[in-house]
Each structure stands twice: as structure tokens, then as C-alpha cells.
Nucleic acid binder design. Structure first.
Length: 219
DNA sequence: TGCATGATGTTCT
DNA sequence: GAACATCATGCAC
């Protein structure tokens, strides 16, 4: 059987990312992020993201200036910043703003809408469906993202990673925000954005700040 | 359904 | 040597 993929298709333009990460982050909800390679294609509809601002953000990897690890954050917008954490997981960000301004958006969770078989095969323990890409480490596993993809351009045709506009864009009323997950500094700033009521949003962990999960608005 | 804990290694103090 | 943008498991309820 011949399979025609909707993705890779239209890509978000680089100008989309040439803005502060706090503006880009909510606009990424509902967009389709995909990886394509020899193993096949996996596409995820983004349901949860977090904005990290530049060197002024105490929770950002750029807070202490440029290093070898975070170099991609200082480059042009529309590229993937991939890092390794906790000794076993990768996380992927999309870089925002012009070179020299190190802001980015962490892709935290989404629904696998294509390539579920491949995504399941990549995930240990045979997790399926809801848990395929629910959390930043899981999302990278499902898409087969590791540090070899650090710096990949998501705005260029032919890249191993890409991102496309929403099939149906969520409205402002569908978006919630709250504190970021798993950080100790600047834990009170509501820079985590998610789709209200979406079951593919990751479970909220630490940071007992006010208002959590399908509750607090402020979109 | 929820909390506590161990795995594991890179980066920076 | 400590901290870390995490996850899966195990056991309590």
C-alpha cells in the first residue's frame, strides 16, 4: 500500500521563531513536530511547551553565558537545541530570536498522530498511545532524537526535523499557562503553556506554586 | 492514583 | 563533588 504523509509538508517560516520565546511558545501548541529518517516518520501534535528566555532567565541554560553545550541557543532561530540530562534522557528545544539572543522553547509533550508503530518500538516497556510522547524525555524517544540532531534546522526542507502549522489552530480559550516543571530557579514564572483538557499533557510534578493542571488560566 | 526512589552521565562550581 | 528543563518501577492507599 502506498502511504501519503501529510508531513513533511508546509513548514513554519523562520520568521515565526524570530520573536521572544514567550510569544512563540503558545503559538506552537497544536503545531505538528516531526522527525523523518531511514527508520521512518513520526509526527507529534504539540500539547505542552515551556518558554526559556535568554541570559536573564535564571532557569535557562544560557543564564551563565555561552558554553559548548548551549552554543546552538546563540545561533539563528528555527534550529533545534538538543541536550542530554539526568544521565539518560534527551530534551529538544526550538531556538527563538536572532543570533546572540539565547532564548528557546522546550517541547514537553504531544500526541503521536503518525508513525505510532515506530514510536512504540523506540519506547522501552511497550508503552503506547497516551504515554508515547507525554513528557520531554519520552517525546525525544518517540521521535528518535539524540544529540546528533543538535543544531538541526526545522525550517529547511530536507531536514531530519521539521515543524508544520496546526491542522486546526487552538484558540486563546484553549490555552492554559502555569509554572515550569522540574526547575528550582524562577519557579514562580508562568512560562509553561498547554492545551486545556488535552490528555497528552504531561503530569505536573514539583513546584507547589498556586494553580495546577486543567485549572489555572491566564492565557 | 500518588509518592518515594534508583538509574545514569554531563556540565559547571 | 553537586546539581540537573527526567522516567520507570514499586508499594501504599
Amino acid at each position: 500500500l502506498l502511504t501519503v504523509h501529510p508531513w513533511p509538508g508546509d513548514l513554519l517560516p523562520r520568521a515565526f521563531f524570530d520573536r521572544p520565546s514567550t510569544q512563540v511558545a503558545p503559538d506552537l501548541l497544536g503545531c505538528v513536530f516531526w522527525s523523518d529518517g531511514p527508520a521512518g516518520l513520526v509526527a507529534v501534535r504539540l500539547a505542552e511547551v515551556e518558554a526559556y528566555e535568554g541570559e536573564a532567565d535564571p532557569a535557562s541554560h544560557a543564564f551563565r553565558g555561552r558554553t559548548q553545550r548551549n552554543a546552538v541557543m546563540y545561533g539563528p532561530p528555527g534550529h533545534a537545541y538538543v541536550y542530554f540530562t539526568y544521565g539518560m534522557h534527551y530534551c529538544v528545544n526550538l531556538v527563538c530570536q536572532p543570533p546572540g539572543q539565547a532564548s528557546a522553547v522546550l517541547l514537553r509533550a504531544g500526541q503521536v498522530i503518525e508513525g505510532a508503530d515506530l514510536a512504540t518500538a523506540r519506547r522501552p516497556g511497550g508503552h503506547r498511545d497516551r504515554n508515547l510522547a507525554r513528557g520531554p524525555g519520552r517525546l525525544c524517544q518517540a521521535l528518535g532524537i539524540d544529540r546528533a540532531l543538535d543544531g538541526a534546522d526545522v525550517c529547511s526542507p530536507g531536514s531530519a526535523l521539521g515543524i508544520s502549522p496546526p491542522v486546526s489552530a487552538p484558540g486563546p480559550a484553549d490555552i492554559r499557562s502555569g509554572p515550569r516543571v522540574g526547575i528550582s530557579r524562577a519557579a514562580d514564572v508562568p512560562l509553561r503553556f498547554w492545551l486545556a483538557g488535552d490528555s497528552y499533557v504531561s503530569a505536573y510534578k514539583r513546584n507547589g506554586a498556586a494553580g495546577e493542571e486543567p485549572g489555572t488560566a491566564r492565557a
